[in-house]
Amino acid sequence: MSTQPAQPGTIFSPTLAARFDRLVTLYPVKRSALVPMLLYAQDEIGYVSDAVIAEVAARIGITELDVRNVVSYYSLLRTKPAGKYHVQVCTNISCMLRGGNEILDHCKKKLGIPNKGVTPDGVFSLEEVECIGACSWGPAAQVNYAFHENLTPESMDQVLADYRAKAQNGGGK
């Protein structure tokens, strides 16, 4: 797929641009592609930048205001860069009962950043999130999209250490 020829006038990789070209054809109306497009664009660019908004608006044929209205509604979409590894700790009821808050506090301490902070090296960002659907295996966290469940402070340390090692080895997401 990465052999796609580069498309002129796009900020996205050839693969993603090609995916978007197809995405808008799947639905009875183009606009249905908006939310997935924004999510995939964020995955590639790191956040929903002004340039992402402009290109997505143009691809779908709606105003940038329309796109911003939608972006700001969904909590996964962010308009500022996050860390390479975005650590999302659930503290909702089921996780809370099993130590979710302690995991969050532990991450704050360990990473030295507050909720919604980014480490100075840009490797990690931290966010307290609502239920991620791991209630029976709490406390749980997602790093980017990967689930980490039945966490303890010790296992969380290991999770963070693994990602840090990955970052140092220039590993991907």
């Binding site: 105003t63 205001l65 329309d66 911003r68 209205n69 700001s72 509604y73």
Partner: peptide, 9 residues
């Protein structure tokens, strides 16, 4: 004109 929108939630 569609100059106003609703943002956040």
């Amino acid at each position: 004109v569609w100059a106003l929108g609703i943002q956040n939630r």
